[in-house]
Design a binder for these strands. Structure first.
Lengths: 337, 337
DNA sequence: GTTAGCACTCGTCAGCGTCGGCTGCTAGAA
DNA sequence: TTCTAGCAGCCGACGCTGACGAGTGCTAAC
């Protein structure tokens, strides 16, 4: 559809624009990129690319700037051909992260920081939901007569906890009994499985209102485990981008990103139905209106439905090749733990 | 030192400047504030206030703007007299927070969000360190032959965890034995106390290299518990402040605030030696050079050395009265849990 | 100690002309 | 056909200018 040279012109224009954040003219392209043709020819190509919707002029007599569609074509090209998925991307970073992190939370934190530094964009790491994780152990720790703490440990080392309040005082022995029951019910299963199995497996458990109360709290705890566990690093990187020199341009974006539910929704949207190792959403492709000016490169990690998400968010004028490789590296670092 | 009227002129000027973010002139002050004197008199007062270093002119023939020292005088005045500490500040917010939060982490998150909304500034809540917290229970959960998870539960409901790797396979029974030993050693004590007591109380424990390994990990886990547990909410509020309209003005500030160690250091500095319910650091009073343009209102919550911190960070041109009351309310919400 | 009046300062803003970069078009070459 | 060279034209960036107005400091009078 696009002639080979025009594809190259588009790539060159994007590369140049990503690097300098200024509209790119025909002369600049011929001077800095070995296109083998004169500026006049490039002008014709640019005109054609503009007609096709890949680039646009901010105003007459300025150079061209890529549109969302232009970036999209560029990225599709990148993904289909150029990028070697199997090659270890930044393997050193992966190894280093793995070696130093002794806690899942710390690993997430450090990965996010490394990703932000590497890409000079905002990076987000969302902890996997516990919904699909297999439960290793449930502890019930008494805090007082009327309060106890449920602590869930998943097989991958994730930990979640939640307080339970009792209307009447509960003896330590009762807690121990409930704990034992819960472990019989949950150990080795995911919560979803356990729910299905509960009625047949351990019917006597459900007779006890205390057990049911605690079980409900466990469910609530798991449900909420996705929220409030997003690590964001690199806001200051975004502040330094020329497209956000006016802070008000960034304000609605940050408002959206500070809200966990919006963030998770954006990631769900981006990853939905895509089986590629990482999804790229450019500008208006993002569901959220506020994010029309940024691109999201997201990748799931972990397993199954409740997988975590690692993502980079930056201006649409980002170095997609670098970002995609970096996200992929982060995904590896987080997956095999 | 400052005559009563001049004090009032200063307060009026600050109030006006906080509201409009524009240099304030003598006429505006006489028109909007019942000072009972003419603009000319106010001009003399302004001149005196400028000589004393409380206000400054951005340029000749512009109005005046408060300096750090001016804000300082204003805040000292506020703290010494006007602000009724004992009055319930936003008690409804406190109650509402307490009612809905079922988890310490969630309480922190929600408190931070409420604080950011109330003050329209950035709010930060740092979890208390486990250093001073009494340990309720230690669990040792086997993840595989060579790995286990240490889970600490403190008496106030805080939870921390950390993975331990073993060089040789460790049997579940051995883990159970270590767990039992650790509980005998730690339960009801803070880690600091336990360390002191360890040698005499349970000498046989330290003979076992495995126990020592796990104990070391517990110590490391506690040590690190202060880090990576800061909730920040309200970056977008800062982006909307006129002083940060140029994003580059905010970039160094955000760089500093994104770094947990810098953040904790700033809070330590601010709270050091102050026994007031909340510390106010204005502009250059902050240790960190990058934070010269913002004010920090911080308050410890919880108990003892490892107390958590709740703080609001905004432009020096902030509504100190509102912010101080809000921080105080947040501190209450977090303290009595 | 306070006030009115006045001269002065200086940043802001709109208007204007120059400069330079980039385009589209057309005619001619490969 | 496809590419190239040259040219006319467009338009934003930038620097200059003068009018405007907000605000000050000073002085003399109350």
């Amino acid at each position: 559809m696009l002639s080979d040279r025009r594809q190259r012109v588009l790539s060159a224009l994007i590369e140049e624009y990503v690097a300098r954040a200024l509209p790119v003219g025909s002369r600049t392209l011929t001077e800095r990129y070995a296109l083998g043709v004169s500026p006049a020819t490039v002008r014709n190509d640019l005109s054609a690319l503009e007609d096709a919707g890949y680039i646009t002029q901010p105003h007459t007599s300025a150079g061209r700037v890529p549109t969302d569609a232009g970036y999209r074509a560029f990225v599709d090209d990148l993904l289909s051909g150029g990028l070697a998925w199997d090659e270890a991307p930044h393997q050193d970073v992966v190894d280093q992260l793995r070696a130093t992190a002794t806690e899942l939370d710390a690993l997430m934190e450090q990965t996010s920081a490394a990703l932000a530094r590497l890409t000079d964009c905002l990076s987000v790491v969302v902890a996997p939901s516990l919904m699909a994780a297999r439960i290793r152990q449930v502890s019930l720790v008494s805090l007082s007569d009327h309060r106890a703490l449920v602590v869930l440990v998943a097989e991958d080392g994730q930990v979640a906890n939640r307080q339970v309040s009792f209307a009447d005082a509960v003896a330590p022995e009762a807690l121990a009994r409930i704990q034992e029951l819960l472990n019989r019910l949950l150990a080795g299963r995911s919560l979803a499985e356990a729910r299905a199995a509960a009625y047949e497996a351990v019917p006597e458990a459900l007779a006890d209102p205390l057990v049911r109360l605690v079980l409900e709290e466990v469910a609530a705890c798991v449900q909420e485990s996705g929220l409030g566990r997003a690590h964001r690093v690199g806001v200051s990187s975004l502040l330094r981008k020329p497209e956000f020199a006016q802070a008000q341009a960034l304000a609605p974006i940050m408002s959206a990103l500070e809200d966990d539910t919006v963030l998770l929704h954006v990631f769900d949207d981006a990853l939905d139905g895509s089986c590629a190792p990482c999804a790229v959403r450019i500008g208006r492709e993002n569901g959220a209106e506020a994010l029309a000016g940024v691109s999201v490169v997201a990748s799931p990690y972990g397993w199954g439905d409740g997988a975590g998400v690692v993502a980079v968010i930056g201006p649409t004028r980002m170095d997609y090749s670098l970002v995609i490789r970096a996200v992929r590296a982060a995904q590896r670092a987080l997956s095999d733990e």
